[in-house]
Amino acid sequence: MMLNTEPNIAAPDDFYEALLAIHQDLTPEQSRAVDARLILLLCNHIGDLDVLRQAMARAREGIEPAGRDAIIAIQA
């Protein structure tokens, strides 16, 4: 299945308002926790890994990594 990027939410302004409302008065850290839970819940609801991968790729588009993971390449 293709990721649907056409309008799919009947009441877009209601949705957007609800999305912002769950972040009201939260610190960035709290917001990150809420977002993480929301993403996990939605991904499970969608279930189709192929669609999820398309969405992940679309979300990541155009963002050049400026940070660094805490991993060390090793050679033994």
């Binding site: 993480a36 839970r37 996990l40």
Partner: peptide, 26 residues
């Protein structure tokens, strides 16, 4: 967790696991 996002998803998974079956599998 190797960055802040990994940490956030890890903690979210553990929080949800309490009452969401799908999260327990993660």
């Amino acid at each position: 967790p190797k960055n802040e996002a990994s940490r956030a998803f890890r903690d979210a998974t553990l929080d949800l696991a309490k009452d969401c079956a799908f999260a327990r599998r993660l």
